[in-house]
């Protein structure tokens, strides 16, 4: 009888201690996770000089209506948006109706088999902006958009695409150094903070655009002018 009581007491203690250890392990896991994240987020952020005032994108055009375009250079729907609405945007820019602000965010890094193509492409676009060729490079990157679940374009290819546009050594150096890696992470965070949960996301004069067809875009811009 006594022996059974003792055994039960011992089991109770063992259960209690394993529970305490488990709870501690969970707590430690959370703290370590946050620590890793904080370490990843440390490091200097260089904001491209060509960026907009808040540093989160690149403006093309001088029109009165601001169109914010959030894109990832690997995103299929963005490629589609560029091929269907790209000409309309270019026309609206030429007609001085809109200022397009491109935010080259990186949300699809997990689809490039560990090469973080989205971040590299975003950074390379910022490097091209330093050389005054953002719009051109943006277009070329979408013309060469790799499919998801491939390694994407390697840095050599990212550089040669820029060189073909006349970008020089500073561009090459900038891509090789991954100079804007932290900046890409920062603008991606900013986009999430603004409520962007996918790409492409388009805002016309600050309002999210639901119909991203050329007609939908034109209508939204025209009603924003009034």
């Amino acid at each position: 009888m006594v022996r059974e009581q003792l055994a039960r007491e011992q089991r109770r203690k063992a259960t209690l201690w394993t529970s305490v250890i488990a709870a501690a392990a969970l707590l430690v896991a959370g703290v370590v996770g946050y620590g890793i994240f904080a370490a990843q987020r440390s490091g200097d952020v260089f904001t491209p000089t060509a960026a907009t005032a808040d540093g989160s994108g690149f403006a093309v055009g001088t029109g009165p209506v601001t169109v914010d375009v959030y894109e990832d250079f690997m995103c299929p729907a963005c490629g589609e948006f560029e091929s269907t609405a790209g000409a309309t945007i270019a026309q609206l820019v030429t007609d001085k109706k809109v200022t397009v602000v491109y935010h080259p965010i990186a949300i699809l890094d997990r689809f490039s088999q560990g090469t973080n193509y989205s971040t590299r492409a975003s950074g390379a676009a910022a490097c091209a902006a330093d050389g005054g060729k953002f719009a051109e490079y943006h277009k070329v990157l979408f013309a060469n958009r790799p499919e998801e679940n491939t390694p994407g374009l390697d840095d050599t290819k990212l550089i040669s695409l820029g060189t073909e546009l006349g970008l020089g050594d500073p561009f090459t150096q900038c891509v090789q150094d991954g100079k804007y890696k932290t900046w890409s992470a920062q603008i991606t965070d900013k986009s999430s903070e603004r409520g962007v949960t996918g790409t492409p996301t388009v805002y016309v004069a600050g309002t999210a655009l639901k119909d991203r067809s050329p007609a939908g875009l034109t209508t939204a811009v025209e009603s924003a002018v009034k």
């Binding site: 994240f37 990843q40 890094d109 997990r110 992470a185 991606t188 965070d189 999430s192 949960t197």
Partner: peptide
């Protein structure tokens, strides 16, 4: 593998 993306998922 992508803790920042995890944060964005929570923020969504």
């Amino acid at each position: 593998g992508d803790l920042a993306a995890s944060g964005r998922a929570v923020n969504a």
